[in-house]
């Protein structure tokens, strides 16, 4: 099983998914991410899926689950870099990723997190 690395940048955690995710990796990522949010006190999580070409309903649900978990830990999750084909697939699957913030790219994702926290603080 491959593990997805989690990078820390200030108080933001960045997860760039560059492998073909299987169900085990997804579950491991959820656990690792929850641990990291607690241990670093991060306020935001960015999941970069620029390199992801194929998603299924399980991975689609992963985004919602991670967003819900991090929100419990007072951190916002933004999914960035979704490809058009992936977006179309998710819509066809009937997944609208309720409760997940999305941004076009990493830069806009970081800006969005700053904006959200600025509004809250």
């Amino acid at each position: 099983m491959q593990r997805v690395p989690i990078l820390k940048l200030g108080d933001i955690l960045i997860v760039s998914i560059q492998i073909d995710l299987d169900d085990q990796s997804v579950l491991a990522l959820q656990e690792d991410l929850a641990d990291m949010v607690v241990s670093t006190g991060a306020r935001g999580v960015i999941i970069d899926i620029t390199a992801v070409e194929i998603v299924d309903s399980f991975i689609g649900r992963m985004f919602s689950t991670i967003a819900a978990i991090t929100r419990m830990l007072d951190a916002e999750t933004v999914v960035v870099g979704m490809r058009p084909a992936v977006a179309i697939t998710l819509v066809e699957l009937g997944l609208s990723l309720g409760g997940v913030r999305t941004a076009l790219n990493l830069e806009k994702g970081v800006a969005m997190l700053e904006h959200v926290r600025g509004g809250a603080g």
Binding site: L90, V91, L97, K108, G109
Partner: peptide, 12 residues
């Protein structure tokens, strides 16, 4: 609607 939701998924 599908188009709008897909765009939203991408962050637009």
């Amino acid at each position: 609607l599908k188009t709008v939701v897909a765009a939203r998924l991408m962050g637009a």
